[in-house]
Design a protein around this nucleic acid. Structure first.
Lengths: 161, 161
DNA sequence: TGATTTGACTTTCCCTGACCTTCAATTATA
DNA sequence: TATAATTGAAGGTCAGGGAAAGTCAAATCA
């Protein structure tokens, strides 16, 4: 412990505990100032600690009035999700992915249209990069999509078509 | 948020929601006065937020009695999607992609849930590969998703939430 | 050796001010 | 009176400064 990245991580998580709603906007420079470090250190923390696997989603905007927005996803406790994320691991082939998507449809986790969308997303020609990186990319994207769906449902609740 | 350009954008969009017809006339100076900014700021907002890509068309007239007229375009869905694919080209940045997804949602081409899914898919942190290949990958995925949607609609048709 | 940290450099976005163009109305002039 | 010049009221353009955040590779640390 006691390295900077961990401190910053804890600090941000602490901020989350103090706000309602699960959406936190921070300023990169302000953060860097507070910890007396290089601004890029903040990026390092975000890319290593606030990942989807760990239940966060990060967006940002540059320029005047820019910000970094961190969303804490509402689904960490979902067993089904965990299993799927585990199953995907950090690499998944096209056929495994298609089977998984079919399964998600059968379980009514996704709609017919969403199934088509996902199949398009994980298609090898669309990913268009060589193996084995392609299977890793596919895994990242699939996990992010499933996470997004779960988070959406956790936030809004509701059924599917 | 909280930058002027966003406020002005919201203000204008709010005016649109209050009028019938989709044609809105504004005065540049009056607008600048209302927001206490330079008149050219209004042009900035118009050229960055009320573009064709985002579904608006702007005309104006100088001189005494001059005005700026903003038209909200009506779309024909099939052509619209083809145009979007052209617009994407073979590389697209994250912010362009987000604007595009927002537009697809505004035009009710996609559902709220699908919007979340797509935002997750095109997110920098989730794609996790370096530029410039990242922007190309994003373009390929987005185009294939849109194609899949067109295809699905052609086969099944139907409305959205 | 892998994780952390930094710094130099890049890119994106916002906002303004100085200067330009267009148009309509009014005034001056032949 | 018919036309020409003037004026003032719009809107347009562009370069530049500044404010963020992003990238990447080299250095450092455990």
């Amino acid at each position: 412990m006691a390295n900077l990245a961990d401190l910053i991580e804890d600090f941000i998580k602490d901020m989350f505990s103090r706000i309602p709603g699960g959406i936190l906007d921070i300023q990169r420079n302000e953060m860097a100032n507070r910890f007396g470090c290089a601004p890029s250190q903040i990026n390092y923390v975000l890319t290593t600690r606030f990942t989807l696997e760990r239940g966060y989603f990060v967006e940002s905007r540059r320029g005047g009035g820019g910000y970094i927005r961190i969303r804490k996803l509402k689904i960490r406790e979902d067993e089904f999700l965990k299993e799927i994320i585990d199953y995907i691991g950090d690499s998944i082939s096209g056929s495994e992915a298609r089977a998984l998507i079919t399964r998600l449809r059968e379980e009514k986790v996704i709609s017919e249209r969403e199934k088509e969308i996902l199949n398009a997303v994980i298609n090898r020609y669309n990913l268009g990069i060589p193996l084995p990186e392609r299977d890793r990319l596919r895994a990242r994207i699939l996990k992010s999509v499933i996470t997004a769906i779960m988070d959406y449902e956790a936030r809004k609740g509701g059924e599917l078509s």
